[in-house]
């Protein structure tokens, strides 16, 4: 199957996924006990005010009508207005979502850039010192709670050494770069604002390390075991028997094949990062989606919850598409058969 075919297929699938997700979230959020109109109007508002509020929000209409109205608006890019913040949900998402993605991407980059070489090294030196060290590191990574690590890093680098900031996305006295992607690093680069770029990067380091550490362990282990398996393959023996050097065998013949099974895992890890960011965001006061969602749920802010769910599931489908395309890039056989 060609790249084009798979993209076409996934986009069709996306429609169904978003439809399904929106129905399920819609139904569930309306089945939860609690009255958003009451929450908005306040504890001491009169029943009359609450009723008015309910009517204004359209909550008095039958469920299916409410749903159809919602989907109709959705198709026009209107996610509704947040009950809690009173801003259009779309605006909130554009503000908070890029922050979370920026953090997750940075964390994943950290995990991959360090995890792949460590995994390879560990496999090549199986059962020797470096392997034991790497394996200890990855087990530690997997079993360390993110909030604890976050606090430790803040204590060390912010509190004791004072070389890195411990909270927020940017120094307090700076204004965010003009919005293009929502990633402060990328946007400040586009704007040519070097001071903002440095500040954004500095703010990204500790949260990214905290969030990425678990996945560093996962990636290292995955690459290690995939490499060990690949190094047993007959074609590695062929390469050895033809006198190819060890580096060539490991990197050219081994790693490329070991990456194929690892790609799925890395894709899944990214999904995890998006959802797992909540704790890290809290520890570092990172103004991301995690906090926003938690607070929206607490406030029964349906438009916000729905908006987030739709965006997140879309992102997830697109992410899986990316994984499949990477697959095809790495494995010629999948390119052919699909």
């Amino acid at each position: 199957m060609s790249f084009l075919n798979i993209i076409r297929r996934r986009l069709v699938l996306l429609i169904f996924v978003v439809f399904g997700v929106s129905v399920v979230t819609f139904v569930i959020s309306h089945m939860i006990p609690g009255d958003p109109a009451r929450m908005m109007a306040g504890e001491r508002a009169s029943d009359e005010t609450v009723a008015q509020m309910r009517e204004a929000l359209g909550l008095d209409r039958p469920l299916h009508i409410q749903y159809l109205t919602y989907v109709g608006d959705l198709l026009q890019g209107d996610f509704g207005v947040s009950i809690r913040t009173q801003r259009p949900v779309m605006d909130d998402i554009l503000r908070f979502f890029p922050a979370t993605i920026e953090l997750a991407v940075a964390a994943l980059l950290f995990a991959i850039v360090l995890g792949i070489p460590l995994g390879v090294l560990s496999a090549v030196a199986k059962d020797r010192g470096i392997d034991h060290l790497t394996r200890t590191l990855s087990v530690t990574g997997i079993s360390t709670p993110a909030f604890w690590l976050g606090l430790l890093l803040i204590y060390l680098f912010y509190g004791q050494l004072g070389i890195l900031p411990g909270s927020g996305r940017l120094a307090g006295n700076m204004s965010p770069p003009p919005f293009v992607t929502g990633f402060y690093t990328v946007d400040s680069l586009i704007a040519g604002d070097w001071a903002a770029l440095r500040s954004a990067l500095a703010h990204l380091i500790l949260p990214a390390l905290t969030l990425g550490f678990i996945h560093l362990g996962v990636v290292t282990r995955q690459i290690r075991s995939a490499m060990l398996e690949v190094l047993q393959e007959d074609y590695i023996r062929t390469a050895k028997a033809s006198g190819l050097s060890r580096a060539r065998i490991v990197l050219d013949h081994g790693l490329r094949n070991a990456l194929i099974p690892s790609v799925t895992m890395i894709g899944l890890a990214f999904g995890d990062l998006l959802y797992g960011a909540v704790l890290t965001e809290t520890v570092f006061a990172w103004p991301g989606m995690g906090n926003y969602v938690v607070e929206s749920i607490a406030a029964l802010d349906f438009p916000a919850i729905m908006g987030f769910t739709v965006v997140a599931s879309t992102a997830y489908v697109l992410l899986n598409l990316l994984v499949d395309l990477t697959y095809m890039f790495l494995d010629p056989q999948i390119r052919e058969i699909g």
């Binding site: 007959d234 050219d252 494995d331």
Partner: peptide
Amino acid sequence: VSMVFQEPMNALNPTI
């Protein structure tokens, strides 16, 4: 000295 092995199906690198 060179060598040829039994399983030609697996003896070549599938991604090269």
